[in-house]
Design a protein around this nucleic acid. Structure first.
Lengths: 234, 234
DNA sequence: AGCGAGAATTTTGTATACAAATTACGATAC
DNA sequence: GTATCGTAATTTGTATACAAAATTCTCGCT
């Protein structure tokens, strides 16, 4: 296949990026850990060149920061702090608010279809949250699907920025999703407000509803983070 | 001494990045132009390694895109389109809206001081705009100062994102600043609304005022871009 | 034992050689 | 004259060698 040959060449930095990012998001690379180019290179069986590219990208996106204590550039896994969580959530809310606003400006037929789709997902979300033994993975995935659904309406730049920032919210979400089950009903209600505004074509209301949803999530999370203790911010 | 920015270890990719970015922003590297690694490297007297880093960053930030027609990765200067302008402006508005909202949540003394500072800048802005022969450079700079002023209130991530996205709005602003002198008074009024909301500590109003300012700018600009013709979008 | 200076080690930054892939060009056939 | 195929040239992707800078370790001195 030609396509595999083509993607093979371009795939290596992407591959390294994705694997490192996954390690950071699910916590196997703990906050504060130093990321060594040569280490990663030998471990993944490539040279430092593609690793360097991936690392540079991770750093720009905020998964990796320069070690504050050390003078020279020494990439370390970014710490998780309640302050950062708050900022990331507000940021995602702002980006998704733009998308929702634009979705609400579409033609009626599109809005109706989108609203129906969102309602379906939210209903499944509600059901999953109400289950006796909630499946956190599924709940998480449905919430993600819900939000990604209206992101289709966003422009190239907003979508790409969202793809960059959103996974960082996941770093926090995954840590604390299990502790937030009691609050999930609030999310269901907030989701309904989003759907209503989009269906009605009320752009400011749609934007506000999305932002509110994320702002509340930020506050719920902040409480949990504060109670649990921050990680990697020593 | 030998600290000449060139020999400093970490300065080279940054240097390349800044020079390329400047070339793109002020239009000397026209939209659609292909950027060749080896070209840039020899022209700036460095190897491809730091150029590659700079290029990667420019691409991620949206100054450079992969040529759509060609199959292989071929970085080209991003085109200027009215649609993209609209998106960039809304994006900047959303980011600055977050900052303004947070500024409005500060303590009274800080808000008062900030409001005074903003009023001063806006007054200078008004005066510059009302001049017989307006100095576009100065007007542009004052507008920038005004907005950057409340960005101090934003968190690390929002500020860094703003630093990345805002200069791309400049690519468009430069095109039309000379054509919009008649509309500058509207900006003065919109700025006043921002100051009022921050001084009053009304976060939602501050956010809305900033977003409105940018949304209106986007629409004013779209008209000019449409009239002037898009560049680099063949 | 503590502290500091210097050496060794670690790690990143840069340059360059080489390989792979795509595009461009030209030649040939219909 | 045009289309198609093959070859050459351009350009990016990767690996590696080497240099510079910083941290760490060790040894000597107080």
């Amino acid at each position: 296949m030609r396509t595999s040959a083509i993607s093979r060449k371009r795939a290596r930095p992407q591959e390294v990026y994705e694997r490192l990012r996954a390690l950071i998001i699910d916590g196997r690379l703990a906050p504060g850990t130093r990321v060594i180019e040569t280490d990663v290179a030998t471990r993944l069986g490539v040279s430092r060149t593609p690793v360097r590219g991936a690392l540079q990208r991770l750093q720009q996106e905020g998964y990796v920061v320069d070690s504050p204590t050390l003078r020279q550039t020494r990439p370390t896994v970014a710490p998780l702090t309640s302050e950062d969580a708050h900022e990331v959530f507000l940021l995602v809310g702002a980006l998704e608010g733009l998308a929702a606003s634009r979705a609400a400006l579409g033609i009626a037929a599109e809005r109706t279809a989108l609203a129906a789709e969102l309602t379906d997902i939210n209903e499944a979300f509600r059901a999953a949250a109400a289950a006796q033994r909630p499946d956190h993975g599924r709940i998480f995935e449905l919430d993600e699907r819900f939000h990604r659904c209206y992101m289709k309406a966003a422009g190239r730049r907003v979508r790409s920025l969202h793809d960059t920032v959103k996974p960082q919210a996941e770093r926090y979400e995954r840590l604390y999703v299990s502790m937030l089950t009691s609050e999930l009903h609030t999310s269901v209600v907030e989701h309904r407000a989003i759907v209503r505004a989009i269906r009605a074509g009320d752009a400011p209301a749609a934007q506000a509803a999305v932002e509110t949803n994320w702002r509340n999530a930020a506050e719920r999370l902040a409480a949990v983070v504060a109670a649990t203790g921050e990680r990697g911010s020593w």
